[in-house]
Amino acid sequence: MALGEGAAGSILPQSLQTRLKRIAVILTAALVAIFVTIPVYIMVAIAVQSPADVFRGGTVHLIVDTLTFRNFRVLLEDTNTVQYFINSLIVTAGATTMSTALAVAAGYGLTRFEFTGKTLAARAVLFAYMFSPIVLAIPLYVIFYSLGLLDSYFALTMALTAISAPFTIWLMWQYFQTVPISLEESAWIRGASRTRTLWDVVLPVARPGYISAAIFSFAVAWNDFTMARVVMSSDEMYTITVGASLFLDRVTIGWGETMAVSLLISIPPFLIAVFLQNYLLQGFNVGGLE
């Protein structure tokens, strides 16, 4: 497909196209800002007010005039929130690291090495996602029970890795295909080993790719409910999603505590979003080397 070919777009003059683009950009940005901010703001506003303030007079008040940490205090004093939270952090960190590392290595292997059945194997892996996970809880429990792996961080980390890895591997496989082999070739010619090359040349280039793989595996692990419910069976080992679902249906727990725990659950995602998005936008900075 050659550039500059006649197309529908070329009916409009370039200056108008540029202006349209600018308007579209601003409009979309504004819409997103509203669409994302309002729901998140609602959560925060309810978490930091006492329920009696939120609901006074029969309407939901979202303007925070009296700040209180009452809801958080209830969580800390009456529930195991801290322990649940730590458990979640442990397995999420483990699963994110493992899944991303696997994806980088496997994605690179799939791109750079030829072996028979490569495409077929990679496609077959995706078929796992087609089975409704609802009915897998029982088989999984049976397997982990038989292996004596119930109630362990290791088992949950492993299971969460297995859930995200098929997709992260695909992501990296595709991503590496956009990285020109010539970069590596020139390193090899200079005498660098394959591992060295992978480390020094390939990884930096692949950064946006593996950052998005990491974001995905983080989301899978942090969001997980089913797996934690299968693998963990004691209160000290529950992750925050399972733990919260346990205390949130108590008679004494209301919307204030619900939103407070939601806010706590949102902190790691927020930090991840702030930190990783910078790396995500490091951009294609090796173009000149080609």
């Binding site: 029982i138 419910r229 679902s245 346990l246």
Partner: peptide, 15 residues
């Protein structure tokens, strides 16, 4: 082993 109210006791039991 605590479960939440509703069907989650049944689920845990089945497993």
């Amino acid at each position: 082993t605590y479960t939440s109210k509703g069907t989650s006791t049944d689920e845990q039991l089945e497993k």
